[in-house]
Amino acid sequence: MSSIAIAVVVLTLLALIFGLILGYASIKFKVEGNPIIDQVEALLPQTQCGQCGYPGCRPYAEAIANGDNINKCPPGGTATMEKLAGLMGVDPEPLNEVAQENVKKVAYIREDECIGCTKCIQACPVDAILGAGKLMHTVITKDCTGCDLCVEPCPVDCIDMIPVEQNLKNWDWKLASIPVTLIEPVPEKSTVTISVKQIDIAVKEDSQC
């Protein structure tokens, strides 16, 4: 009889002690908010394009944290999806959008066609379009996330999404992709196929900072 009593007492005491420890730990190590959301958000590309069906990257991060599919982010591509899968501990799934070619693009406004309607300014989620009503608009290229959202509202279709050009700074060292054809050493016969494109845009960009 007494052994039962001892066991009960001991177990009760143990339960009490562990309960206290747990209680203390829950206060001491309390985590504000849901850290997983921040982690998910850190992985998302922050284009704020809304292609996932949520109004921005943070809401989608919250949705993922609450169990939404991880394959709704076309700008992030497969790489982001795989990272999300790793973080969330779920199986990678193919993107539900048709996998687009993952070339980073930025919006470019054909400035002499712009009528200054400010519609694109309102559409831009990151305020990367500059301009005023009835005055020409332009895109701040370095802030453009390439989300596409300004293209649709334009009443005169003067916004193009153009791929970011490769320059000496972001060149990826893929030597094999330099289109050089080898020739016999016959002079005066250029067979280099790198075409020197004389685009005014590029010239403009280079001459500025």
Binding site: Q46, G56, C57, K104, V126, D127, N170, D172, W173
Partner: peptide
């Protein structure tokens, strides 16, 4: 070199994403 430039571009993209997020939040 390829890996380094990829890392560099990745870091830049990351920074850009950070910037975009800040701008997005500022806009909201």
């Amino acid at each position: 070199r390829i890996a380094k430039s990829a890392l560099k571009n990745e870091a830049e993209e990351k920074q850009q994403a950070e910037q975009a997020k800040i701008r997005f939040e500022a806009r909201l």
